[in-house]
Amino acid sequence: MIEVSPNERAGAAPTATGPDDAKAASPVSLTNANQPKTPDAASIDGAELLNRIHAFADRFICYPSEQASISHVLWIAHAHLMNAWFSTPRLAVLSPEPGSGKSRVLEITALLVPNPLLSVLSTPAFILRRVSDQDNRPTVLYDEIDTIFGQPRGNEELRGMINAGYRRGATVGRCYMDKGKVLTEELETFAALAMGGLGNLPATIMSRSIVIRMRKRAAGESAERFQPRTHEPEADALKIQLADWAASIFSVAEVAQPVLPDCIADRGADVWGPLITVADLAGAAWPDAARIAATDAVLSAKASESPSLGAQLLADINTYFGDADRLTTADLLGKLLEDDEAPWGDLRGRRIDARKLAVMLREYGIRSCTIRMPNGTTPKGYKREEFHDAWKRYLPVSR
Results as ranks from 00 to 15, higher is better:
E338C: 07
H54T: 12
E3W: 00
D146I: 03
L50A: 05
A84L: 09
R167A: 14
V120A: 05
E385F: 02
H388W: 05
L74R: 06
S5L: 02
P96D: 15
L198R: 07
F190Y: 15
P261A: 02
V271R: 11
T147P: 02
L30V: 07
R355T: 12
Q241A: 11
R348K: 01
C62D: 10
N318W: 03
A13I: 10
I76A: 02
A12P: 15
A16Q: 09
G165P: 11
I108K: 12
F56S: 07
A77R: 09
P124Q: 08
S87I: 07
R267S: 08
G11H: 09
T123V: 07
R225V: 12
A243F: 13
E48S: 09
S119G: 04
A92H: 11
A256D: 01
D346S: 06
P19G: 09
G197E: 03
W344F: 04
Y364E: 00
E66P: 03
L94M: 14
L313I: 00
D323N: 04
N155R: 06
L347R: 06
A390C: 07
L91Q: 11
L260K: 00
P89R: 10
S306R: 14
S251W: 04
G349K: 05
T277Y: 05
A203F: 07
E232C: 01
E224L: 10
S26G: 05
R137A: 14
S43H: 10
C369E: 15
E188F: 14
W245R: 03
D353T: 04
F56E: 12
L187W: 10
I264G: 09
T31D: 12
P374I: 11
M206L: 15
M373H: 02
A290I: 01
E186K: 15
A125P: 07
T15G: 06
I292Q: 02
G46L: 01
S248N: 15
L121E: 15
A68F: 11
L118Y: 00
A290V: 03
C263N: 01
G160E: 08
V278G: 02
K380S: 08
Q134R: 15
V397D: 13
S398A: 10
A219I: 04
K335R: 14
Y320P: 00
L118A: 05
G310Y: 00
I44P: 06
F226I: 01
L117G: 04
C175A: 13
T295F: 00
E224T: 09
R159I: 15
A192H: 12
R153C: 01
L106F: 09
S65M: 06
I44N: 08
M206P: 11
R348G: 01
D266Y: 11
R393L: 10
Y364V: 02
S29A: 12
A191N: 12
D340H: 07
G46E: 00
E338D: 14
M214R: 03
T15C: 05
R9W: 10
E234K: 13
P261G: 00
P274H: 06
T88W: 14
E305L: 13
C175E: 14
P274R: 14
N136K: 11
V182K: 13
V397G: 04
M161S: 07
A164Y: 08
T377N: 13
F226Q: 03
